[in-house]
Write a protein that binds this DNA or RNA. Sequence first.
DNA 1: CTGTTAGCGCGTTCAT
DNA 2: ATGAACGCGCTAACAG
Lengths: 349, 349
Amino acid sequence: MPTMTDVAKRAGVALSTVSYALNGTRPISDETRQRIFDAIEELGYKPHALARGLASKRSRIIALLFPNSERGLGFTEFEFVTSAANAAKENQYSLVLWSYDMHDLPELLQLTQQGLVDGVVVMEVHQHDKRIAMLREMGFPFSMIGRSDDADGMGYVDIDFHQTMQDAIDHLAGLGHHTIAFVNQSESAFSAGYGPVVRSQVAFERITQERGLDGITQFCRTAPNAGYNAFNALIEAHPDLTAIISLNERAVPGILQAVAERGWSVPDDFSLVVVVSAAGMAEMIIPPLTALEPLTNDMGRRGVELLIHQLEGRAEADPQALIPCRLVVRSSTGPSPLIPARQRVTVSR
Amino acid sequence: MPTMTDVAKRAGVALSTVSYALNGTRPISDETRQRIFDAIEELGYKPHALARGLASKRSRIIALLFPNSERGLGFTEFEFVTSAANAAKENQYSLVLWSYDMHDLPELLQLTQQGLVDGVVVMEVHQHDKRIAMLREMGFPFSMIGRSDDADGMGYVDIDFHQTMQDAIDHLAGLGHHTIAFVNQSESAFSAGYGPVVRSQVAFERITQERGLDGITQFCRTAPNAGYNAFNALIEAHPDLTAIISLNERAVPGILQAVAERGWSVPDDFSLVVVVSAAGMAEMIIPPLTALEPLTNDMGRRGVELLIHQLEGRAEADPQALIPCRLVVRSSTGPSPLIPARQRVTVSR
DNA sequence: CTGTTAGCGCGTTCAT
DNA sequence: ATGAACGCGCTAACAG
């Protein structure tokens, strides 16, 4: 591997001149620049990333903090990752996937202190997030996918859960549904203050109330059989229920199964809309699901761009972005079934 | 940030002694070692990753080559990524996600020459893979998830497609199915020599022939509507068809839909088994799919371990691993329907 | 506009 | 068993 010294010799200039030519850090005459680039070309020279990082104190590496929770990342989160990787590369940064236990603060501390990365993008942010508190206290550059409660002035991209929930509810209400359940994720995620779970919950309660609808909440583990049980519990307690909004991708198959076992069909007898679920997911189901799909590409991308702008001192007019979800009507939602048509089935339980 | 010099001063030893103590590169008296570690503790010293990498010529960073193909990565591939990330971290390596255009050789060349990573794990390997040829020619350390045709002596983890296909076929044959179709991925992937597509295809043809079964091949784009069309084409040309094996996750919803539209039900009238599809996927479908599930965790993990062992000169007894898939019987396969029961439906087309 | 030089933080050879 | 000193490849003052 040729080094910068080799290039300098070949071009007949000083080492530093090569450096300046490469980084554009100071003006170089066209003629010498040409000689330098010729030499680089001929030698096949490539700057050494580590050496550059050591000297400049900027590695051009960022980390995506990636919790290896048992819950497991879903399809949607995966798309954050790939879009983040793409965005990093487009900005000439490398993206390291830092898989770690969310509660292991010491490990995060180490990451920030070993000088490997210039900043971090934090995923799965909670309302009171110790990691955020720590990073901020240290003054270590970061951005969030999601947001904590004390996120004022800090850079984040998050989904606009209120708007999303409103769109979902209005879609159903527009179809005549009046009693609507929200199948959230687990109650423990709620207690832990996991952003999407809490914000959606709050929005659901508020909006159903504003609209004068009958809104029912059901927490549910993120697994098909949990969805199955959730539906049965709901329908038993609320025979008028005609529609579900689910923030819980993994529960959906169970819900559908329970619906089918009752002899009902979707969307004729029951409607289901998933919120904050990637398109790839909604299309895997039969019937294809009506969904509120986040622009996942924007999420990962914006997250790293926010961080990079911050690292490069480029002021960001508005470092906070709430991304809307797009309503895609597929085949899992329809008009509310009429009450009479329903009762015969309900009793057959 | 304290440096090694600070530690040395505080412990009253030479800089190099600290280095030796840290790396265990040479014997240190218990007493001075203790002093050194005390100093490290008190100062909160953390070795600087870049400096260490520069000096040692080993960055302890590896890259996962991650094609950003239009086709999009599926659930299954995603699990490779997360398991690779976990394995890297357990071995004290950082994993950078290198998203790039598979055909952009210059970019790969650059990655290997900029001194950032010690080696790469290549995903989505093709039979004649220019990337592999290049890496090998350069002598750059790498391992593969998948394998090329000339993989002799090189490290890889791949799925045992032959065994997997055999298990799938035998499962169906055991249920009395005789005419079985294989819904592969796109023909262009086949022509391009994409490993899973080619190897599964070969295995399918060979095994059905050995078993005296009627094996039909159907290429199919990786999208639901393509699956829909594929099924209709198949059933029209082969009215005896009673079962499908699919390597094509994304096509499954379309297939199921087409089956349903024919008034058939799964698994009573038709059986479907997916191969090489992560459990998370098979459970998202209704009915839950009988599947041959790869131990995805092992795939990503073994890929990075192979690479790391190679980097650290630890001889690997057998640097090649064929991972089997596990047959999980769910609700999409059943006994072959009897011919008579069938015909009335077939004509109603 | 260009050259000289001192680090960046750590690994490692050579002495002792 | 320990120290001193050099070098990894590059950036960024400082000096013309």
